[in-house]
């Protein structure tokens, strides 16, 4: 097993609704790729902030109350949501879109999980893409480790 990428990446509010690209290189003769990704924090537990953010966004989007105070409270705590994609030298290998802030995937020519497609682990330039669907904290730290074998 060879680590081809390991690092921590800071996402800030400026990254809301953007794709953050993290390039990495895969050596020759790799057959499997293991991706371990996590991000923290998942939640913003500040209820006052959460309620104010929901109310402000709701009125901006709908122009009228879509939810009662009780329904808004049921949406707490507000949470960060990132989704992850991978591009191989041949193009898109899929996207993992789910709420969990700790995810592990293995990709090979025969198998893949979590929204990715099986593909050959070709040598060359790859990209891990963090899509910032929702950020409700000042920063999010993404921890990423990619290994090949």
């Amino acid at each position: 097993m060879q680590t081809v990428l390991e690092g921590q990446y800071e996402i800030t509010r400026k990254n809301q609704s953007t794709h953050v690209r993290i390039p990495f290189r895969v050596p020759e003769k790799a057959e499997k790729m293991h991706i371990s990704v996590s991000y923290d924090p998942k939640y913003n537990f500040d209820e006052e902030y959460g309620l104010a953010l929901i109310e402000e966004s709701m009125l901006k989007q709908a122009g009228e109350p879509l939810m009662s105070k009780g329904e808004m409270r049921a949406c707490l705590p507000v949470d960060n949501h990132l989704s992850f994609s991978i591009d191989s030298p041949d193009g898109a290998v899929g996207t993992a879109h789910r709420g969990d802030n700790r995810q592990n995937f293995t990709i090979s020519a025969d198998d893949a999980q979590g929204g990715f497609y099986p593909c050959e682990i070709k040598s060359g330039d790859w990209t891990f893409i963090v899509s910032v669907t929702c950020i409700v904290t000042d920063t999010i730290t993404v921890s990423l480790k990619i290994e090949v074998e």
Partner: peptide
């Protein structure tokens, strides 16, 4: 298209 979006279901509302 008119469901609540950010920060409850970000992207769900059609912006």
């Amino acid at each position: 298209p008119r469901r609540m979006g950010y920060p409850v279901c970000s992207g769900c509302h059609c912006d």
